[in-house]
Amino acid sequence: MRRMIALGSVAGAPGVTTTALALATAWPQRTDGGVRPVVVEAGVWGGDLAARFGLPHSPGLLDVAAVVGQPQPGSLLGAVRELPVGVRAVLAPSGRAPCTEAVRLLGEDGGMRVLRGEGNDYGSVFLDLGRLTSETQKLAGAADGVLLVARGGADALAHVYAQASGLAQAGGRMTLCVVGECPYAPSEVSAALGVESVVRLPWDAKGADVLGGRRHGQLQVEGFRTSPLLRTVRQLAGRLIEAGQGDPSCAEVLADVLRERNIR
């Protein structure tokens, strides 16, 4: 079955979608038998990827959600689109109402079956949850690992502390990704927020422009000219793979914490 990693934030727009695309770009395919990962837009607002790259959102998230209750709902890959940056993705439309219902359906047993696939389905799925809400609790809680993305300023980290410090109970399954400049060392952030794993993601203007659809082309994953963002994210991918990201008890803890915190 596929590995599933969720990405989200607790406030603002710190770059969750860009981080998800970077992770998919840098992910070592040999880990999944050569199968490329898939980014699934699974936040309640949707529409980011279609707008970034000027693509239609269908087939996409709504098509997947529409068939999850059927005895044989088909493959997630039937709704995948190829993005200009070389990433496979399932796109969502703009609008809270349709996306919220789709996210709810994906969080049910049928939706999990489609996202995870069957026993012989390989690859990794990265759930772009955007800002974490009560509607995304089930998806975040069912993931093998969670990347919480935040800017490095004191105000942004204060939001993390206020709303999600209890996520540290998930142990090594939760990683805080601090984007851009930060006046604190990762060890200081880890100690202050009670989060064991903290990773600094560099502010990479060129890389962000390519992944944001503002600049044409694809980023180099290896070699001398590797994007600083991809170089760091590739190291992060190695840590996630090495950690195994698969203890269901941690997923249950995460769901409980989100419910108790009532993140909205």
Rank of each mutant, 00 (worst) to 15 (best):
A24P: 10
Q169R: 14
D63T: 11
V221M: 05
S134M: 15
K138C: 09
G12N: 02
G78A: 13
S75R: 14
F126I: 15
G33L: 07
V125A: 11
L62C: 02
E41L: 00
E135P: 10
L176E: 09
G194Y: 01
L61Q: 05
D109P: 06
E101R: 13
G110W: 09
D144Q: 12
G60P: 00
D109F: 06
L229D: 00
V210F: 10
T133C: 12
Q72M: 04
R261M: 13
T18V: 12
V64P: 03
R131T: 12
A140C: 15
L55P: 02
T31I: 12
P37Y: 06
S9F: 03
E222F: 01
V221H: 00
A22L: 05
L127P: 09
V90G: 04
M1V: 03
V64T: 07
G43A: 05
E41V: 04
G69T: 04
M174C: 15
V221C: 10
G123N: 09
G69I: 07
V114Y: 12
A26S: 14
G110A: 13
D109T: 15
G246N: 06
M112V: 13
R113V: 03
L240F: 00
V85H: 06
V114P: 06
G213R: 02
E135I: 02
G46M: 10
D144G: 15
Q163K: 11
Q235A: 09
R81D: 00
G86A: 05
M174E: 11
V44I: 15
G34I: 09
F224H: 10
V189M: 06
R2T: 10
N262W: 12
A13V: 05
W27K: 03
G43Q: 04
R116K: 09
R88N: 07
D109E: 15
V160G: 03
A251V: 04
L132C: 08
G46V: 07
A143G: 11
E181S: 13
R234V: 00
V16F: 01
G238A: 02
V179N: 14
P59G: 08
R259S: 07
V103I: 11
L49M: 02
V10N: 08
S134N: 01
Q72T: 11
P71S: 06
D204L: 01
G212E: 00
G130F: 07
L21D: 02
A162Q: 15
L77R: 15
S58A: 12
G123K: 13
T19H: 08
V44F: 06
L132V: 14
E252D: 07
V39W: 08
A150N: 10
A89P: 01
E108N: 13
V40D: 04
A42M: 09
K206N: 05
S124L: 15
V40S: 08
A185I: 06
D63Y: 05
Q137Y: 14
L55G: 01
A13W: 00
A191R: 15
A65N: 10
A66S: 14
R81E: 07
R225L: 08
P28L: 09
V40E: 08
D209I: 01
R30S: 06
E181Y: 12
E118Q: 11
